[in-house]
């Protein structure tokens, strides 16, 4: 039955259902139990923010608390995946991923290609992303573009509880390594979620709001900021279409191109830094493949090219806001120098 649950609970439920369905699914990470060997739930924290709480009581030894050594247990998870298991490794913050880049970039992402397609690596690395948690520069980054850059990895970043459950279930069942990015400021966000298992295919963006005047492309927390902007713009009789990419690799170019074909205006929002980001990627792709549809230059709304500040006031300014997105939409509407505009005029 569908009921409203939080994104945190939806993630927990997806892992629970897949562990019940498939005995090869295991979970490992720092404090994912938070009290291995202890008898009760009270002693088991279930991860730093309690996302996996309760799973130890249900699945026991299939959850493993690991030492504080990301390179060791991510490597172990990748090795187990290559040997027939479906491990989920939880790496608290994406910021720590750097110490296991060899395992991820050069091993997991490459096995299928280097062994003639005979080796699968069905590992999921779950990790928290994003700013706004007052956790300073080393626990707040949006490093999705780094992983999107690597062929052989799939990169997922849900914006709500329904998508989180369906995309995580798909990630666990997928035969390739998946970097599953959970925005810590969305854990409490609630939506209608069926109790049963379901999957959402990769590479299918979600048009969360339809509009004819401009296309806003976003993912993760930025989807909600984009919707705020669209609400504000609607009061000015500007109808913005909002696209939630949901998965960054693979990415659903068709939906983006189709929308820009209708609106002629593009604003890409990314909580990552401005250079070599999802924003630049989408803007470049549209510029190359749908230039004729554009009626103005694409606008990018991103975090600045600085580390995430610790000062709460500065951190709030750092995160792209609904107001900044609305302003970018207004800029695209005010200019009209693109090929689409010229063609329309002639």
């Amino acid at each position: 039955m569908a009921r409203k649950i939080s994104m945190k609970d939806a993630i927990n439920e997806a892992i629970d259902l897949e562990m019940r369905r498939d005995p090869t699914v295991i979970l490992m990470g720092e404090d994912v139990v938070g009290g291995t060997g202890s008898p009760g739930e009270a002693d088991a924290w279930g991860g730093v923010l309690g996302v996996t709480k309760g799973l130890y009581a249900k699945h026991g030894k299939r959850l493993m608390d690991t030492p504080l050594s990301e390179s060791a247990y991510v490597g172990a998870a990748i090795g187990a995946a290559a040997c027939g298991m479906r491990p989920i490794a939880e790496l608290m913050f994406i910021d720590f991923m750097g110490v296991c880049f060899d395992e991820i970039f050069n091993q997991a992402a490459k096995f299928k290609y280097m062994f003639g397609g005979k080796a699968n690596t069905p590992v999921v690395i779950r990790t928290m992303v994003g700013a706004g948690f007052r956790a300073a520069a080393q626990h707040s980054q949006m490093l999705t573009p780094i992983f999107t850059h690597i062929p052989g990895l799939k990169v997922v970043c849900p914006s709500n509880a329904y998508d989180a459950k369906g995309l995580l279930t798909q990630s666990i069942r997928d035969d390739d390594p998946v970097i599953f990015c959970e925005h810590k400021n969305l854990y409490a966000h609630e939506s209608d979620v069926p109790a049963e298992a379901y999957t959402i295919p990769f590479g299918e963006a979600n048009v969360v709001r339809e509009g004819k005047d401009a296309t806003i492309v976003a993912y993760g927390l930025m989807v909600h900021k984009a919707l705020e902007a669209a609400d504000a713009l609607a009061k000015e009789k500007v109808e913005a279409e909002v696209i939630d990419l949901r998965t960054l690799s693979p990415i659903d170019w068709d939906t983006v191109i189709e929308s820009v074909g209708n609106t002629g205006r593009l604003v890409v929002v990314d909580e990552a830094h401005p250079r070599c980001s999802i924003a630049t990627d989408v803007a470049a792709y549209v510029g190359q493949n749908a230039f004729g549809a554009l009626r103005a230059g694409a606008q990018m709304v991103t975090a600045p090219h600085t580390p995430v500040p610790f000062s709460p006031a500065l951190e709030d300014l750092y995160i792209p806001s609904g107001g900044a997105i609305a302003a970018a939409v207004r800029r695209t509407l005010a200019s009209g120098q693109g090929a689409g505009a010229q063609r329309k005029a002639s």
Partner: peptide, 16 residues
């Protein structure tokens, strides 16, 4: 409507 399509899609994606 978009919601009608979404509801059917959500149903079709359930296991089984």
């Amino acid at each position: 409507s978009r919601q009608l399509v979404d509801d059917v899609l959500k149903y079709k994606r359930l296991d089984g």
